[in-house]
């Protein structure tokens, strides 16, 4: 069962019986039915079943699914927009038309009562979801808890945000050799921040290449791996051409 297989709710996936319950870790969109002898996994949504062996004794199961609306999960890297502030908190929107999350003004590296960042409404931030609790607003933070430093989190200056599907954003963030990104690197210099809430922030030296990069990423959701190189090539050639026309 190491192959990725499509599962739908109602499927019963049997897991080898010699594993005991504690060796199975459940990820998103999956539940476990405890039966004697075997363990049966029940997916709760349509998607690809993934199995990852963390160590000899621990296996993670989860369903890789593409949901439409982002719901915060703790540990996620997200891009948000400041939409207001109250007390010591900023209100941050991760998604249009969703309940905003909160960001403590002290959740920045070295922030203190006297020295804290001044963010304005409309500023863009890259942050990490700190805690999610159904009874209170989810909270995000701009500090990496392991180091206590910024580690890339914080206010994003300039650039542009492009929107992609949630599953694609996860893929780009977690796959170190994401094809489209390695291809774009050969074309131009860019800064990138990927939020698993489906937002990708891009910054390059000029507007034309930002637009070209952004469109490539957006469109690459529909491209097959084999086409990416040619398509990126085309997009940048077209960009150069229109830029030259604009200059003349």
């Amino acid at each position: 069962m190491s192959v990725r297989q499509v599962v739908i709710p109602g499927d019963h996936i049997e897991v080898e019986s010699q594993k005991n319950r504690s060796s199975i870790t459940l990820g998103p969109h999956i539940s476990l039915v405890p039966t004697i002898g075997t363990h049966t996994l029940n997916p709760t949504t349509v998607g690809l079943l993934e199995e990852k062996h963390l160590s000899a004794k621990r296996t993670v199961y989860y369903v890789e699914a593409n949901s439409k609306r982002y719901l915060p999960e703790s540990g996620d890297n997200v891009i948000g927009v400041i939409i207001g502030s109250f007390g010591d908190f900023y209100r941050v929107s991760l998604n249009d038309f969703s309940v905003p999350v909160v960001l403590n003004q002290f959740s920045f590296p070295n922030a203190s009562k006297k020295n804290r960042p001044r963010l304005e409404v409309g500023d863009l931030i890259y942050a990490r979801v700190e805690s999610v609790n159904p009874n209170v607003d989810a909270e995000i933070s701009c500090v990496d808890p392991t180091t206590g430093k910024a580690e890339g989190y914080g206010k994003l200056e300039g650039g542009m945000v492009f929107k992609v599907k949630l599953a694609y954003a996860r893929n780009l963030l977690f796959d170190p050799n994401a094809h489209i990104l390695t291809e774009l690197v050969t074309k131009c210099k860019f800064e990138i921040a990927i939020g698993v809430n489906g937002k990708i922030w891009l910054k390059t030296d000029d507007i034309h290449s930002t637009v070209a990069c952004g469109r490539c990423i957006e469109k690459s959701q529909q491209w097959s791996d084999a086409d990416i190189k040619a398509n990126v090539e085309d997009a940048f050639a077209a960009m150069k051409k229109s830029k030259d026309e604009g200059d003349n």
Binding site: S93, D96, G122, L124, G158, G159, M160, I207, V211, G246
Partner: peptide, 24 residues
């Protein structure tokens, strides 16, 4: 919060792009 939340970065970028006669 039930509205389109457009960040200042996006706003600035769109305007800058329009000034250079390109769009997203």
């Amino acid at each position: 919060g039930l509205d389109y939340n457009i960040s200042n970065n996006e706003q600035q970028f769109v305007l800058d792009a329009l000034k250079e006669n390109t769009r997203l």
